[in-house]
Amino acid sequence: MSDSEQSEEQNREFKTDEDFDPEFFRNIERKSKIFSCIQCGTCTASCESGKWTALKTRNIIRKVCLGDLTVLKDPDIWLCTTCFACWERCPRNIQPTGVIMELRNYATKLGNISPNHRAVVGYLGNTGHAVPINDITKERRKELGLDELPPTLFKYKTEGEGKELENFKEFMFDLPPVKEEKKPKKKEEKK
């Protein structure tokens, strides 16, 4: 949990204004009016994922409002299933799902993408599909009299003018490498 990470930052000391930077999230605020959150907790109470995991939507939003940048290292933001229940029920019409998706973009640039999401991006890069085909499905297709591989990008990855998949992979799916140290690395490529 993020708490254990923070223990290295001496969580016994007081935090001061310098530890926060609300302006960092100004772009998110502009689109979602996030500063008008009253922390009522309807989002957390509605959260389908939060029932089973450590995700506390309200707390994530709190960190954004305060400008607590540790939220970008928080693994909980990757637990959101984007079901939009919080978006539908928020009494202040803030869009928590949208905020979380933006936070994920920011976090990824810092190299903090979760292993599961990284894996999905890997599949997208290598096969052109988020959920690649497996042997069982290939068998089924043969039984039905279809080609083993459906006519998608994966099948034709070595064909085509500019070898489309290779091109895409180069400029779309270059993620910053897995973070080794505690300090966030500077991003090199665009996602």
């Binding site: 009522c40 907790g41 957390t44 109470a45 509605s46 939060g50 506390k56 309200r58 229940a85 029920r89």
Partner: peptide, 27 residues
């Protein structure tokens, strides 16, 4: 905490209020 919904158990008819206690961060 503002309750998000009131759930009803279809078998027993029992009602449950789903809310997060924001002060202790407990759903």
């Amino acid at each position: 905490g503002r309750p998000s919904e009131i759930l009803r158990n279809p078998l027993t008819g029992e009602l449950r209020v789903i809310v997060e206690d924001t002060l202790s961060m407990t759903p």
